[in-house]
């Protein structure tokens, strides 16, 4: 059973409805630990929806119906006894638009620690250490160390997005979900963030939604191709782009590459 131990996220016949509209159809997948898995597919195919199932962010919308299972570390996160708070500590999320909270850079990174320590109490020193470490890990510390008290929302977009990644790290998540994290960034910033992801992937399971197939090819180890709410193909990236198993995958890839 060697294979099973490095499965990080596992979905079983996962279906999701927004009201009457079905957005996911029986999605079954196994996403492995320690690598980057990209979710690709045309607009509206349900990539974001699937991603947001992994930390139950879809529950923010009323009238969302879900069937099937999502197991993280072998535990179905839709079971009644699962703590949403603990789940979101383990599964961090980065959004399409960088969204630092309207707090200082320092407070943005310390936010997670504070809300998860009992009574919001945590020693100053420990907190400062964790903040510095997190910022180091995303290679942001040197740029911001002299103005940690400035607002995170005032940084350039690339640094904002790095900050949004950094604020997840003090909570020691095992999974990072990223929804088109580079779509608001220019080419250079995109490269910087991609570099960062490559370095982070040893420690985390990274699932990234992207519209940009070149990007999926550059950074992902495995790829999931989705179409109209169905999982069409899940394969090693090298395979999927060179020898797609499914006709529809092939059409999609070729359509983009001419």
């Amino acid at each position: 059973m060697k294979q099973n131990t490095n499965i990080s996220i596992e979905t079983d016949n996962l279906s999701l409805w927004y009201g009457k509209f079905q957005a996911l159809f029986d999605v079954s997948s196994r996403i492995k630990h320690g690598m980057i898995t990209a979710l690709i597919g045309p607009s509206g195919c349900g990539k974001t929806t699937l991603l947001r199932c992994f930390n139950r962010m879809n529950e923010r919308f009323s009238s969302v119906g879900i069937q099937g299972q999502v197991r993280i570390m072998g535990k179905n996160i839709y079971d009644a006894d699962v703590s949403l708070i603990e789940l979101r500590k383990t599964v961090g999320m980065v959004f399409q638009r960088p969204n630092p909270m309207p707090l200082s850079i320092y407070d943005n990174v310390a936010f997670g620690l504070r809300i998860h320590s009992p009574h919001g109490k945590i020693s100053r020193a420990k907190e400062a250490e964790a903040v510095e470490k997190a910022l180091q890990e995303v290679f942001l510390f040197d740029q911001v160390k002299d103005h940690l008290d400035k607002r995170g929302t005032g940084l350039p977009l690339e640094q904002q997005q790095k900050l949004c990644i950094a604020r997840l790290l003090p909570l020691k998540p095992t999974i990072l979900l990223m929804d088109e994290p580079c779509s608001a960034l220019d080419a250079e910033a995109t490269e910087a963030v991609e570099d960062l992801l490559r370095r982070l992937k040893e420690k985390f399971t990274i699932v990234i939604v992207t519209h940009n197939m070149a990007q999926a090819r550059r950074i992902s180890d495995e790829c999931i191709y989705m179409l109209k709410g169905n999982l069409i193909e899940h394969n090693k990236t090298a395979e999927l782009f060179v020898r797609p198993r499914d006709k529809r995958t092939e059409e999609y890839i070729e359509g983009r590459y001419g």
Partner: peptide, 9 residues
């Protein structure tokens, strides 16, 4: 969303 995704109540 940012706060909720970090597990804030």
């Amino acid at each position: 969303e940012a706060a909720e995704a970090l597990g804030a109540t």
